[in-house]
Structures are given as C-alpha cells and as structure tokens.
Computed example of a mutant assay.
Amino acid sequence: MTTERKSSQLRVSAHWLTVLLQGFRSLGISADSVLQEARIMPGELSEPDARIDLERTLLFWKAAAAATDQPLGLRLGEYLTPLHFPLLAMNLMHSRSLLEALGMAER
C-alpha cells in the first residue's frame, strides 16, 4: 500500500537547491533573482537539514529557465558532476527522514 502525499507536503533538500544555484551561477544566471522569484530566503538554504516546499522549488526552476535562452538542463549537465551528489545527500532527497535515508544507504 502506498501513501499519497499532498503536493504541499512534498519537500526538496536545500542542499540540492544550493548545488543547483552554483550551477546557475556558472551559467551567468543571477542566484539572487532566482531566489527572489521563488520566494526563497537565502538563509533558508543555509540550514543543513532544510527542505523547501515543492511549490517554491518549481518556481525556482521556472525562474532559472526564464533567465536564459539556452537549454537549462543540458547546460547544467555540463556543470554538475557525480561529485555534486554524495550518496547520503541523494538518499536524504528521496527519504522522509534521516533514518529512512540511512536504511536506503545500508541496502
């Protein structure tokens, strides 16, 4: 049995958004304007276990895409490497809790 979660309950790791912002900067996209458009305060990303709601995460992506005439995903692929995705951070992005992430890492 799967539990359906409302989109308002879905959250994205702030670490992931921080990595994306680094990529955006490398492409000449203003991180400040992306955060402002997405209604994300820079301090929200500095908390190690912070999560940002899905609605603002989607605004984040839309703001970045609107800031360039280049294909954003393909350009980010040139910047991001496997070093940007440590195992535990990836597990945390897809887990409801630290315990669940650790369980995934153990498997």
Rank of each mutant, 00 (worst) to 15 (best):
L35I: 07
S97T: 15
L87P: 06
K62D: 15
T18R: 11
F60W: 11
L27A: 06
Q9T: 06
S8K: 02
G73C: 08
M93G: 12
S33C: 00
E47G: 02
L54S: 04
E37G: 04
L98A: 09
H94L: 15
F85S: 04
M104L: 15
D49W: 04
T3N: 06
L92F: 13
H94W: 13
H84G: 03
D53T: 01
L80G: 05
S7H: 12
Y79T: 08
R39N: 10
R107G: 03
F85I: 02
L72W: 07
G23V: 08
M1S: 12
A67N: 09
Q70L: 14
R25S: 03
L58V: 11
I40Q: 01
E106W: 14
L102A: 12
T18G: 08
S13Q: 10
H84Q: 08
A31L: 03
D69N: 13
I52Q: 05
L74R: 08
R11M: 15
E100Q: 15
F24D: 07
L92S: 12
A67F: 12
T68V: 11
L92Q: 15
L27T: 08
G28Y: 03
E78Y: 02
P71M: 05
G23D: 03
L88E: 06
L83S: 12
F85H: 04
I40C: 01
R96G: 15
E100N: 09
S7A: 14
L45S: 00
D32N: 02
R75K: 10
A14L: 04
S97H: 13
A89Q: 11
R107C: 04
L83Y: 11
G73Y: 11
Q70N: 11
H15D: 08
S8L: 05
R56C: 02
G23E: 07
E106G: 06
M90F: 12
S8V: 04
L59F: 09
S30K: 00
D32K: 00
S26G: 03
Q70A: 13
G73I: 10
R25M: 00
L20G: 00
I40D: 04
F24V: 05
P48M: 02
M41N: 08
W16F: 14
A105R: 14
G73K: 12
S30I: 01
L88M: 13
L76N: 06
P42N: 06
E47L: 10
R11L: 15
E106F: 13
G73A: 14
A64M: 09
T3R: 12
A63H: 01
L99P: 03
M1Q: 09
L20V: 00
L74A: 07
E44P: 01
M93E: 13
T18H: 07
L80R: 05
E47R: 07
D53S: 01
L72D: 07
L83G: 12
G73S: 06
V19A: 08
L20N: 01
A50N: 04
R107L: 03
S7N: 12
W16S: 09
L80Q: 05
I40A: 02
F24K: 01
A63S: 03
W16R: 13
T81P: 02
L27Q: 09
K62T: 14
R39C: 02
M93H: 10
M93S: 13
S13C: 06
E78G: 03
L59E: 11
L98P: 05
A64Q: 09
G77N: 10
P48G: 00
F24R: 03
